[in-house]
């Protein structure tokens, strides 16, 4: 192969035709509040971990819905399970339980 000094770049697009939504379905099966999120961001705003790292519960859930399982599982490790997000969530998403489910899923779903 010739090295031209440049190369094609990876396409950076969510492709919903190929996204792996198995974890999203599995979490929803075990906790239907997973689907109730309205992306308001109060969980991330109040998050203890989010003050020191770029952890966001909203983003973790969103990544799972786009099939980005590995990064979501990795991110979930940052949660300290303090429960502040459960207090603020206006849709009663069972946030701590969902974190626990993601960690549990680590064994089954980690690609």
């Amino acid at each position: 192969m010739i090295d031209f000094g440049f190369a094609p770049m990876e396409v950076s697009v969510h492709n919903m035709d190929t996204a792996d939504l198995s974890l999203a379905h599995w979490i929803n099966l075990h906790d239907e509040t997973f689907n109730h999120c309205i992306a308001c961001g109060s969980c991330a705003a109040t998050c203890t971990a989010g003050q020191f790292t770029n952890f966001s519960f909203r983003e973790v859930c969103h990544a799972i819905r786009r099939g980005e399982i590995k990064s979501a599982i990795d991110e979930s490790e940052k949660c300290m399970l303090c429960g502040k997000c459960t207090l603020v969530c206006p849709r009663n998403v069972n946030t701590r339980n969902i974190i626990m489910l993601i960690r549990k899923a680590n064994l089954t779903f980690r690609p």
Binding site: S12, V13, H14, N15, M16, D17, A39, R58, E59, H62, A63, R66
Partner: peptide, 12 residues
């Protein structure tokens, strides 16, 4: 654009 993750999104 999936504006919640700031990334283009496509699907059929």
């Amino acid at each position: 654009e999936d504006t919640l993750s700031s990334k283009p999104l496509k699907m059929s």
